[in-house]
């Protein structure tokens, strides 16, 4: 199955490990993620100002590229656009919803982008988790060669996968999609209510403290609930929960650091893929000691 794929800027730089692990595991599941030949930044944040249509141009332009891919025969009648980053997902999907609900806005945007084909509104924006869900988690289970036994993982969703409900991929009050994934991988899931709490998002640029305080709460709750590590799907959440542990440690010297994974890194481990795909060097808190301690790496299962 060839599906158009939108990486987003961060996956080409700071979160390159999210992309390499995702492409590798998707391939195992028979999904070929075909990168849009031309794409631009998604716009980063869905603009909430009413008359700020210009901010949606970025997102819609990417949707047009999906049409182009079909026209060029790079994919075959496939209008699902897959993203990995929750932020890109949210921005693209909200813009898409707005275009389908507001033909006037769509017309204005099409008119502004007169160098491009018109956007026809056919694209469906999907997060990789959704696509895997559609495929069935039993397919994931089939690929598991190196179950993550004994690894206690707290899934974290943040906001972008869940809110607002028109675009959310799961029940915003009780999301379960990552839990099902973790079960399929053989890990132990640790549920805790803080999985839906905002990580502080872009506050991280203005005010580290706001973010490190939020992160401290999220991480200590997970830890107290018994988690060894966190699983998530957003480079910004990852930055706030992972890298900001430096500031947490400064404020709370007794804080016990906790590794943060992209869910695709966990999949890659469980599928028995080479560690190269995981790019742990980009993780701030090195997860390898934990993985060795649990016997997940260092065994003979790696490819």
């Amino acid at each position: 199955m060839k599906v158009p794929y939108y990486p987003g800027c961060t996956l080409k730089t700071k979160a390159a490990n999210f992309e390499t692990s995702a492409l590798a595991v998707a391939e195992r599941l028979g999904i070929e993620l075909v990168e849009l030949p031309r794409w631009n930044c998604c716009g980063t944040v869905y603009s909430l100002a009413d008359d700020d249509l210009i901010h949606h141009v970025a997102a819609v332009r990417n949707l047009i590229r999906v049409q182009e891919m079909n026209a060029q025969g790079l994919v075959d009648d496939e209008y699902r656009l897959v993203t990995l980053c929750s932020m890109c997902f949210n921005t693209l999907k909200q813009a898409n919803v707005r275009m389908s609900e507001n033909p006037e806005d769509l017309e204005k945007i099409n008119d502004l982008m007169y160098l491009e084909d018109d956007y026809e509104g056919r694209v469906e924006v999907k997060h990789l988790l959704e696509l895997v869900d559609e495929l069935g988690f039993d397919k994931v289970e089939e690929q598991v060669k190196n179950p993550l036994e004994g690894l206690r993982i707290a899934p974290y969703y943040g906001c972008m996968l869940l809110r607002p409900t028109e675009v959310g991929i799961d029940d915003p009050e009780d999301p379960q999609i990552q839990t099902r994934m973790l079960e399929a991988l053989g890990a132990e899931k640790i549920e805790n209510p803080y999985r839906k709490v905002c990580c502080g998002s872009y506050q991280t640029v203005q005010d580290k403290k706001v973010v490190s305080n939020l992160a401290y709460d999220i991480l200590t709750h997970a830890r107290n609930a018994g988690a060894d590590a966190i699983s998530l799907s957003c480079p910004l959440c990852a930055f706030n929960l992972d890298s900001r542990q430096r500031e947490i440690k400064e404020d709370h010297p007794s804080f016990r650091e906790i590794p943060v994974f992209y869910f695709t890194q966990l999949m890659a481990m469980a599928f028995g893929l080479s560690e190269d795909y995981c790019g742990f060097d980009l993780n701030y808190i090195d997860p390898e000691p934990l993985l060795s301690a649990k016997g997940i790496i260092g065994g003979s299962n790696g490819e």
Binding site: R38, G43, H55, V57, A58, R61, L112
Partner: peptide, 19 residues
């Protein structure tokens, strides 16, 4: 950059500036 592509429209060398 909001990807408005105005730069590309303005380029007398016909470069894909936004890209």
């Amino acid at each position: 950059c909001v990807s408005c592509n105005t730069c590309t429209k303005a380029c007398p060398q016909d470069l894909e500036v936004m890209d």
